[in-house]
Simulated assay, not measured.
Amino acid sequence: MNGYLAGCHGKTYFLSRRQARRRARQIRGEGGPRFDNYRCDYCWLVHLGHAPGEATHLRTGPHGPIPVQEYAA
């Protein structure tokens, strides 16, 4: 798997940070987690990612995502 597939493929993209911020506020208003926006290194569009402390899963794990509650620090 290359970097594009791991980091960009299948994600929702936005043409501007303004659009991404608007969608992040909408999600938060509906009771969802906080999101930050970032410019993708592969497609140069804007994606949303969980804000620090808001992630529900870690990205690493030999058998898929690991819920944060099970992660032993």
Rank of each mutant, 00 (worst) to 15 (best):
M1I: 09
N2M: 02
G3V: 07
Y4D: 11
L5I: 12
L5F: 11
L5A: 14
L5N: 14
A6M: 15
A6K: 15
G7W: 11
G7D: 13
G10K: 10
G10Y: 09
G10D: 10
K11D: 00
K11A: 13
K11I: 04
T12M: 12
Y13I: 15
F14M: 03
F14Y: 15
F14C: 05
L15S: 13
S16A: 10
S16D: 01
S16C: 10
S16Y: 06
S16Q: 02
R17T: 10
R17A: 15
R18M: 09
A20P: 10
A20Y: 08
R21T: 08
R21C: 09
R22K: 15
R22A: 14
R22F: 09
R22L: 13
A24E: 00
A24Q: 06
Q26G: 05
I27F: 00
I27L: 05
I27Y: 09
E30M: 06
G31T: 01
G31P: 09
G31D: 00
G31I: 03
F35Y: 15
F35I: 04
N37F: 07
R39W: 04
R39V: 10
R39E: 02
C40T: 02
D41V: 02
Y42E: 03
C43T: 03
C43E: 04
C43N: 03
W44N: 12
W44V: 06
W44H: 15
L45F: 06
L45Q: 10
V46Q: 04
H47F: 00
H47G: 05
L48W: 05
L48S: 10
G49K: 15
G49Q: 13
G49R: 15
G49L: 06
H50I: 02
H50A: 13
A51L: 02
A51F: 10
P52W: 03
P52I: 01
G53W: 05
E54F: 02
E54T: 07
E54A: 09
E54R: 11
A55L: 03
A55K: 15
A55F: 07
A55R: 15
T56M: 07
H57Y: 14
H57D: 08
R59N: 11
T60K: 14
G61V: 01
G61K: 03
P62Y: 06
P62W: 02
H63P: 00
G64A: 02
G64K: 07
P65D: 10
P65C: 05
P65N: 13
I66W: 00
I66C: 01
P67K: 05
Q69G: 00
E70G: 01
Y71F: 12
A72E: 13
A73H: 11
A73Q: 10
A73C: 07
A73M: 08
